[in-house]
Write a protein that binds this DNA or RNA. Structure first.
Lengths: 133, 133
DNA sequence: CTTGACCTTGCCATATGGGTAAGGTTCATA
DNA sequence: TATGAACCTTACCCATATGGCAAGGTCAAG
């Protein structure tokens, strides 16, 4: 299976498959004489694993670790759980930042008349700060 | 005022001030004979504006537009409001993605025994998909 | 004059992709 | 068999915003 088929089968782009390879996450089983990457069903499973992990937001470095654990029959789920929990914390952190932004944006936008005038609560806030509320 | 003082006064790093300059957001009023950037209080206000806008998550491209409006006495607050509303939508979108990730991560983590065994609901989900719940 | 703190530019890196170019390969069909 | 389409290869550039480092110039104080 060439990279095009592997891309179609995994839901990733060929470009990203090469990128993940360069990042050390997957290597094609072999190369053809012409240098074409050859993938087998085992490789496709790995690619799908990566895709799903990316959908959950795991960074590539985490995925490298998860893949190693996945392929290790003597793995400990404690380690896996830790990785996931730490990632969850990152997600929650980002979530809080975004929620704070959202609140402030909503409040500030609500204060802007939007009547075509030059007075603007949004610019006002960016000028003044006044980190209130 | 040199870039170091401007950084301290604005809360940005000197590095970022140079970056914003290269992105077209601010130019120092002048340069010294030796090429040192010279900032004045007017510039500091701009830098603070950028800092606050970044804290609200506005991308640099948006900030460029906001700065232009800010400095335009004949601006229309309608335009400003639109920029802010579109940014708010982006924030809300990202928020939803992260919330979905958070939910899935929490559920999956909860299903992982974490008892040191090899069985792991997290790896299971990354293997199976089963995009349920 | 030396030293240290500051400044300059420029490159590399992060993380995730999109795009594009220049070239080789494979296969089917004319 | 020759040609073209569709695929592959590597290797760049672009974007997001930010950090770091290196090599060198400048300035002020001692």
């Amino acid at each position: 299976m060439n990279i095009g088929q592997a891309a179609a089968a995994s839901g990733l782009s060929a470009k990203m498959i090469r990128h993940y390879e360069q990042s050390g996450l997957v290597q094609p089983t072999s190369r053809s004489t012409a240098g074409y990457r050859q993938y087998q069903s085992k490789d496709i499973e790995i690619l799908k694993f990566i895709k799903r992990a990316r959908l959950l937001g795991f960074p590539l470095a985490d995925i490298a670790g998860l893949l190693a654990l996945w392929q290790n029959p003597r793995r400990s789920n404690t380690v896996v759980k830790q990785v996931a929990q730490q990632h969850l914390q990152q997600v929650e952190l980002k979530l809080q930042e975004l929620q704070a932004m959202k609140r402030t944006l909503q409040q500030t936008i609500a204060q802007c008349a939007g009547d075509g005038g030059a007075n603007c609560a949004i610019l006002q806030r960016l000028t003044d700060d006044s980190t209130k509320a």
